[in-house]
Each structure stands twice: as C-alpha cells, then as structure tokens.
C-alpha cells in the first residue's frame, strides 16, 4: 500500500497528565476512504487522542503523521484539510447559525459564495434563519457542529462522539449522514464512540483503546469472520458426535473443545435436528448453547468487563 493512502498514522503517541498515562504508546493507522471507529469506554483516552491529532494539545512523546506529513512541521496546511468536532461543539450563542459559520468562513478564507448555505443544507438547518444558537437543542448544535466541520470541504473528518446526547432517531440520522459523507464526498472519517454497536453499524475499521493503550485494530470483515456465531453442544461422547456431524449432515466446520464441547459453525438454527440425531444415536446431550452477540463478548473480553465507566 502506498504511503499517501495512510491518512492518519500515529507512532507511540503518548500523553501523560501528572502520573496518569492518558494515552500510552498508541499506534493507529487510518487509510484513505475508511470510516474508522475509535472505540473505548469513558476515560479510555479517545478525546485526548483526538486533541493531539488536531494539535490542540502537545503529545508528551510520539509522532503524528497526517496525509503522510508530520503534523507539527506543517500544522497550518494540514489542519486546513481536516474538519473536526471535539466533544460538545461550542458556538457563539448570541449569533445565528449562519453568523457562526461566517466566523469560520472568514478565518479559513472560504471564498465559495454559498458554502455556508450548502453546509447548512447538508445538516438540514437551512430553514433556521432567525434562531440564535443559544436557543438550539443539543441535537441541533451537534448538527451545526458537523456543518461547521464541513464548511471548508475537508478531506478528513475527525468526530468525537458525534451522537452523544442524541435521541435514537437523531443517532440514526447522524449515522446515515456520516455514511453518505464518506460515500458521496469521499471523505475519510475518524469517529470515536463508547458504544460498540454504534461503531459496528457505522464503521468499516475499528481501533479499540483501553486505559490509553490500543488493544486491537481490525476491519469489521475479518472481525466478523473471527467472531462467527456457532451452536455449542455438550455431549457424552464427542468423538461419536463429531462423526455423526460429518456423516449425517456433512458438517466439516466444527471444533471440539474440552469436556465434550462441540462448536458447530454452520446449520445455525437447526440445533433441534442435530440434537435429535445425537439422541437417536445414544449420545447424551447435556447442554445446547446458541452463541449470541459475539462482538459484545469480544469487546468485554478485551477490555476486561467489570464496572461501567
């Protein structure tokens, strides 16, 4: 893969506050065109990482390359290619949405005349001409934050928990908005969340951060392959059961685990039929388990579960 397709690359990125390693030797890679989900529980170090990517705070050590260039060598030019929203977006509450965007447009030097209008249309706020942002609901502010991030036609969007505080419909809208931005405008998107299912529905790649460390970086396709669903039988005679699976059902995709546990990766939903054949052949079936929501298990296993937050 050529180097330029790596949009974000961090090398041993570290931020220490006092004694605490908020981000600890983080190595992440985001490729062009990806929607990269950055998953971690509260306090995992997501926002701290994003602040470093945007040059808001200085890393204690480590490197950041964006678009193949060192962030700190060419910060101004690099930041112009990025749109971002960090935590809850802040606005001048005494101004309207248009006026707020005008502040950004003036400073960045967006010369395209209807850029503001276009950005507001994307997030469906173009009808709110009078209302001051101070009177906006949280969801509206969140959308306006996206509009502001899009104002200068960025190639990379960095969004920190963009669905925070949105209702289910708002979350769905935000998700399809992000997906359409990736598809239609070909924007690479880095989005953080603490909710696995959200990342799963949105992203195609994911990095999992826990206590500042990257636990895993993986594409959803291979993750799904690895976390396939299965049927698990606890039987009195696993040898015989395995033979039956092969001869009777032609199943080759199974694993025998200890204590007579057999995992079958096909024929999901047919546990009744399998069970019947086992019993008819004098195999005692002690337990049948249908695996569920493997991804959630996988995440819990990775971060160690326990208390929330």
């Amino acid at each position: 893969m050529s180097k330029i397709s790596e949009i974000i690359k961090t090398t041993n990125l570290t931020k220490i506050y006092g004694q605490q390693k908020s981000v600890d030797h983080l190595n992440i890679t985001v490729n062009q065109g990806e929607i990269y989900g950055f998953l971690g529980r509260n306090g995992a170090g997501k926002t701290t990482t994003i602040r470093m990517l945007l040059g808001l705070i200085k890393p204690t050590s480590g490197q950041i390359e964006l678009f193949g260039e060192d962030l700190f060598k060419n910060k101004k030019e690099i930041l112009r290619r990025i749109g971002s929203m960090v935590e809850v977006p802040g606005f001048y509450e005494n101004l309207t949405a248009r006026e707020n965007l005008l502040v950004n447009a003036k400073i960045i030097g967006v010369h395209k005349k209807n850029a503001i209008e276009e950005a507001l249309e994307i997030v469906d706020l173009h009808h709110e001409t009078r209302k001051l942002v101070g009177k906006y609901s949280l969801g509206m502010k969140q959308r306006l934050g996206i509009a502001r991030a899009l104002l200068h036609y960025p190639e990379l969007l960095i969004l920190d928990e963009p669905t925070n505080g949105l209702d289910p419909i708002g979350i769905k809208e935000m998700r399809s908005l992000i997906q359409s931005l990736a598809k239609e405008r070909n924007i690479t998107i880095f989005v953080s969340s603490h909710i696995l299912s959200e990342i799963e529905q949105l992203a195609d790649h994911m990095g999992i951060i826990h206590e500042g460390k990257l636990l895993e970086e993986i594409g959803f396709e291979s993750l799904r392959k690895r976390n396939r669903k299965y049927l698990e039988f606890q039987v009195s005679n696993d040898n015989k059961a395995a033979m039956l699976l092969e001869s009777h059902f032609g199943i080759l995709d199974y694993e025998v685990h200890d204590e007579g546990n057999i995992r079958v990766y096909s024929h999901l939903g047919n546990q009744g039929k399998l069970n019947k054949v086992f019993v008819e052949n004098d195999i005692e079936v002690l337990k049948i388990k249908v695996s569920e929501d493997n991804l959630e298990d996988y995440f819990t296993k990775l971060v160690g579960g326990g208390a929330i937050g």
Binding site: L54, G55, L56, K76, L79, V86, Y92, E93, V103, R148
Partner: peptide, 18 residues
C-alpha cells in the same frame, strides 16, 4: 474568557488560526 467558556476556542484553533 468567552472563547473558553463557550468552548469556541478549540474550534477556532483547529481550522486553524494563528
């Protein structure tokens, strides 16, 4: 102070402004 209080500073500094 309003740029801190209204959380607008981090927007401005990332667009970027000197």
């Amino acid at each position: 102070n309003r740029e801190y209080a209204e959380n607008t500073l981090r927007n401005l500094l990332t667009i970027p402004v000197s």
